Amino acid sequence: VSVELPAPSSWKKLFYPNKVGSVKKTEVVFVAPTGEEISNRKQLEQYLKSHPGNPAIAEFDWTTSG
């Protein structure tokens, strides 16, 4: 189950709350306009370098507050 949070234009930000008793931590995933899922800052940096014209990296908020 995921919750969609505010994201930069043409992107989606999905929040996957951890299940009770789960060892997996809460996860935030950005979905690029191409449909590619980005789950960490390093991936995001690589994606933005190879896909010019996207929002600046500073516009991506990895917190769950939206």
Rank of each mutant, 00 (worst) to 15 (best):
V1P: 14
V1D: 12
V1Q: 11
V1Y: 12
V1N: 11
V1R: 08
S2P: 15
S2C: 15
S2I: 14
S2V: 15
S2Y: 15
S2D: 06
S2F: 15
V3E: 07
V3T: 08
V3D: 05
V3Q: 07
V3G: 06
V3P: 06
V3K: 08
E4W: 09
E4K: 07
E4H: 08
E4G: 08
E4M: 10
E4P: 07
E4T: 08
E4N: 08
E4R: 08
E4V: 08
L5G: 06
L5P: 05
L5D: 04
L5F: 09
P6H: 08
P6D: 08
P6T: 08
A7E: 02
A7I: 04
A7M: 05
A7G: 07
A7N: 04
A7P: 14
A7W: 05
P8L: 05
P8V: 04
P8I: 04
P8Y: 04
P8F: 05
P8D: 04
S9I: 12
S9L: 13
S9Q: 14
S9C: 15
S9T: 13
S9P: 15
S9W: 10
S9K: 15
S9V: 11
S10D: 11
S10P: 15
S10R: 15
S10Y: 11
S10T: 09
S10N: 15
W11F: 03
W11P: 01
W11M: 01
W11I: 02
W11K: 02
K12F: 05
K12Q: 09
K12S: 06
K12Y: 06
K12E: 04
K13S: 02
K13H: 01
K13L: 03
K13R: 05
K13G: 02
K13W: 03
K13Q: 02
K13T: 03
K13A: 03
K13C: 06
L14F: 15
L14R: 07
L14E: 03
L14Y: 14
L14N: 03
L14K: 07
F15H: 07
F15C: 10
F15G: 04
F15A: 09
F15V: 14
F15M: 09
F15R: 04
F15K: 04
Y16L: 07
Y16I: 09
Y16S: 05
P17K: 11
P17C: 15
P17G: 08
P17D: 08
P17E: 11
N18G: 13
N18R: 10
N18W: 13
N18Q: 11
N18S: 12
N18V: 10
N18D: 09
N18E: 09
N18F: 13
N18Y: 14
N18H: 12
K19R: 14
K19M: 12
K19D: 08
K19F: 11
K19V: 12
K19T: 10
K19H: 12
K19E: 10
V20T: 11
V20H: 11
V20K: 10
V20M: 11
V20N: 11
V20C: 13
V20Y: 11
V20G: 11
G21P: 07
G21V: 06
G21M: 07
G21D: 10
G21A: 08
G21R: 04
S22Q: 10
S22C: 10
S22F: 09
S22G: 13
S22Y: 08
S22A: 10
S22N: 12
V23N: 14
V23L: 14
V23W: 10
V23P: 13
V23G: 15
V23I: 13
V23Y: 11
V23F: 12
K24T: 14
K24V: 13
K24F: 14
K24S: 14
K24D: 15
K25D: 14
K25C: 14
K25T: 11
K25L: 10
K25I: 09
T26G: 15
T26P: 14
T26M: 13
T26N: 14
T26L: 11
T26Y: 15
T26S: 13
T26Q: 13
T26C: 15
T26H: 14
E27P: 12
E27I: 15
E27A: 15
E27L: 15
E27Q: 15
E27S: 15
E27G: 15
V28Q: 01
V28A: 04
V28P: 02
V28H: 01
V29D: 00
V29I: 12
V29S: 05
V29K: 07
V29H: 06
V29E: 02
F30A: 00
F30C: 01
F30N: 00
F30Y: 06
F30L: 03
F30D: 00
V31P: 00
V31N: 02
V31H: 04
A32Y: 00
A32V: 01
A32W: 01
A32H: 00
A32F: 02
P33Y: 02
P33C: 02
P33H: 02
P33Q: 02
P33V: 02
P33M: 02
P33L: 02
P33I: 03
P33S: 03
P33T: 02
P33F: 03
P33N: 02
T34R: 02
T34M: 03
T34A: 02
T34P: 01
T34H: 02
T34G: 06
T34D: 09
G35H: 03
G35D: 02
G35F: 03
G35S: 03
G35W: 01
E36T: 04
E36R: 03
E36P: 01
E36C: 03
E36N: 03
E36I: 05
E36G: 02
E36A: 05
E37F: 15
E37G: 05
E37Q: 13
E37D: 05
E37R: 15
E37S: 10
I38G: 00
I38K: 00
I38A: 02
I38T: 00
I38F: 08
S39L: 12
S39W: 15
S39C: 13
S39M: 12
S39F: 15
S39R: 15
S39A: 11
N40V: 03
N40F: 05
N40P: 00
R41D: 08
R41A: 10
R41F: 13
R41C: 10
R41M: 14
R41V: 13
R41I: 13
K42I: 13
K42G: 10
K42C: 14
K42N: 11
K42A: 13
K42M: 13
K42L: 12
Q43G: 06
Q43M: 11
Q43K: 06
Q43S: 08
L44N: 00
L44C: 02
L44F: 01
L44P: 00
L44M: 06
L44V: 01
L44T: 00
E45I: 12
E45Y: 13
E45F: 11
E45D: 08
E45T: 09
E45K: 11
E45G: 07
Q46F: 11
Q46L: 13
Q46G: 08
Q46R: 11
Q46N: 10
Y47N: 00
Y47Q: 00
Y47D: 00
Y47F: 05
L48A: 00
L48D: 00
L48I: 06
L48E: 00
L48Q: 00
L48T: 01
K49S: 11
K49H: 10
K49L: 14
K49E: 11
K49T: 10
K49Q: 12
S50E: 13
S50L: 11
S50W: 08
S50I: 09
S50Y: 08
S50C: 08
H51C: 03
H51A: 03
H51P: 00
H51N: 07
H51V: 02
H51T: 03
H51Y: 06
H51M: 03
H51I: 02
H51F: 06
H51R: 03
H51K: 03
P52C: 03
P52K: 06
P52F: 04
P52G: 05
P52T: 06
G53H: 06
G53F: 05
G53Q: 05
G53L: 05
G53C: 06
G53M: 05
G53I: 04
N54C: 05
N54M: 09
N54F: 03
N54E: 09
N54K: 03
N54S: 12
N54A: 07
P55F: 05
P55S: 04
P55T: 04
P55D: 03
A56F: 06
A56S: 13
A56P: 15
A56E: 11
A56L: 09
A56V: 08
A56K: 09
A56Q: 10
A56M: 08
I57P: 08
I57H: 04
I57E: 07
A58S: 14
A58F: 10
A58H: 14
A58Y: 13
A58T: 14
E59P: 02
E59V: 06
E59C: 11
E59T: 06
F60W: 02
F60E: 01
F60K: 03
F60D: 01
F60S: 01
F60C: 02
D61C: 06
D61P: 02
D61A: 05
D61K: 07
D61F: 05
D61H: 07
D61N: 08
W62Y: 03
W62D: 01
W62R: 01
W62N: 02
W62K: 01
T63W: 05
T63F: 06
T63L: 05
T63G: 12
T63C: 09
T64P: 12
T64G: 09
T64H: 12
T64D: 08
T64A: 13
S65E: 11
S65M: 11
S65I: 10
S65P: 15
S65R: 10
S65Q: 11
S65F: 10
G66D: 13
G66H: 10
G66T: 11
G66I: 11
G66S: 11
G66A: 12
G66K: 10
